[in-house]
């Protein structure tokens, strides 16, 4: 029986799995079956948790929050949805634990350069009826340093490592639901400026700094000028101003 997550979309189901291959895959399936907006899928452990670009998401039992939400944004909201989900997750963690969480564009959750969590959004758009977006959120709560695979050591952190305390996934989920509701509504109501200003303030780098990007045309460096109205990175590369939507920040250069 699904538990109700009352503070997000009241009355929508929350499925909690003790073990799942991937909450993303389950939520995608449910979205395809017309499950309503606000349906959430959580797992205590994932066998095949997914990250971006086909990477796996380390999902040890009881150590983290692994949850995917079904959303049905209007097409006009699609571009800003990742920023809204990132902001919601950062604020939820901060409200619960006090940890100052930044966003590494587009929406890695970082504390002092180390990754605390990540967000993966996948959607399906059709000019016909059933369009949906699934927002997956993975947050490291109670991981000890030794819980992370060797290749992540030094790059990953958890709320336990940061605060010395254990945290409950359900408590963070409650905060996440209420912050997601706030930012998702802001996007849907077209409050772009408010959202973008809050998002810019949350970023782990600031206008004027130099970034190294991985793009479709290879690596390139540029000075960060700000965000465009769709949340894209506005960079001064050489003498021209360019906007990037589908790139990855390798590091902040200066």
């Amino acid at each position: 029986m699904p538990v109700r997550l009352n503070n997000f979309f009241p009355g929508q189901p929350l499925f909690i799995f003790s073990l799942a291959f991937s909450t993303m895959d389950i939520a995608r399936r449910l979205a395809g079956l017309n499950f309503p907006e606000g349906t959430a899928v959580m797992a205590e452990e994932q066998l095949a948790g997914r990250g971006t670009k086909g990477r796996s998401w380390h999902s040890a039992r009881g150590r983290g929050l692994y949850v995917s939400f079904i959303l049905r944004p209007s097409p006009r909201s699609l571009n800003l949805l990742p920023a809204a989900v990132g902001l919601a997750a950062a604020e939820a963690i901060q409200r619960l634990s006090g940890a100052r969480v930044s966003l590494k564009w587009p929406n890695d959750l970082v504390v002092r350069g180390q990754k605390l969590g990540g967000i993966l959004c996948e959607g399906s758009s059709s000019a016909g009826k059933n369009s949906w977006t699934v927002a997956g959120i993975g947050i490291n709560l109670n991981h000890r340093q030794a819980d992370f695979p060797r290749e992540l050591s030094g790059q990953a952190t958890s709320l336990f490592i940061l605060t010395g305390k254990n945290w409950k996934a359900m408590e963070l989920l409650g905060q996440l639901g209420s912050r997601l509701k706030v930012w998702y509504n802001a996007v849907e109501k077209g409050q772009k400026d408010f959202l973008l200003a809050s998002y810019l303030e949350r970023l782990s780098f600031h206008p004027g700094q130099k970034l190294l990007l991985r793009t479709g045309e290879g690596e390139l460096a540029g000075q960060f000028l700000g965000l465009d109205e769709k949340g894209g990175l506005k960079l001064k590369v050489g003498s021209e101003t360019r906007i990037f939507y589908a790139s990855e920040i390798i590091r902040v250069l200066s």
Partner: peptide
Amino acid sequence: KKGQTLCIVEAMKLMNEIECD
């Protein structure tokens, strides 16, 4: 066919599959 995925449009790591209608 209707419902078949034709491509993906990506922005800010939102991978959006575009279906044929």
